[in-house]
């Protein structure tokens, strides 16, 4: 049972990893690509890491996976924000579509 759940989570992780990379290729400008990168790094990462957690019996492995997951959840938004802010100060204009 945990094995099926683990495979399911890994499958979800695969799907969102692909979605993020596809978005990185397809989306039109830097800021929109930033959102795409976030997909891989949040749900894709969470799903893969929890999937791996269900596949292990060793507590040391579990602790490391928890650390990787929590650390990435804390640093990913900081890196994204730093990139967005640096890009704006660097003069990259977002392509906007404000009209309704």
């Amino acid at each position: 049972m945990p094995d099926i759940l683990a495979d399911l989570l890994l499958g979800i992780g695969i799907l969102f990893t692909l979605a993020g990379s596809l978005g990185m290729l397809r989306f039109p400008d830097f800021y929109t690509r930033l959102h795409a990168a976030g997909v891989t790094e949040t749900l894709g990462m969470i799903a893969i890491v929890t999937g791996l957690m269900l596949k292990t019996e060793s507590s040391g492995t579990l602790v490391r996976l928890v650390f990787i997951g929590v650390f990435m959840l804390v640093t990913v938004p900081i890196a994204s924000h730093a990139l967005a802010k640096a890009a704006r100060h660097g003069g990259v204009r977002p392509a906007l579509r404000e009209e309704e």
Binding site: S21, L34, V76, A79, L83, A87, G90, V92
Partner: peptide, 14 residues
């Protein structure tokens, strides 16, 4: 842009 490349590098790291 340069920032696209940094973003890509960061994303490849993740």
């Amino acid at each position: 842009t340069l920032y696209d490349r940094i973003l890509a590098a960061n994303h490849m790291g993740s």
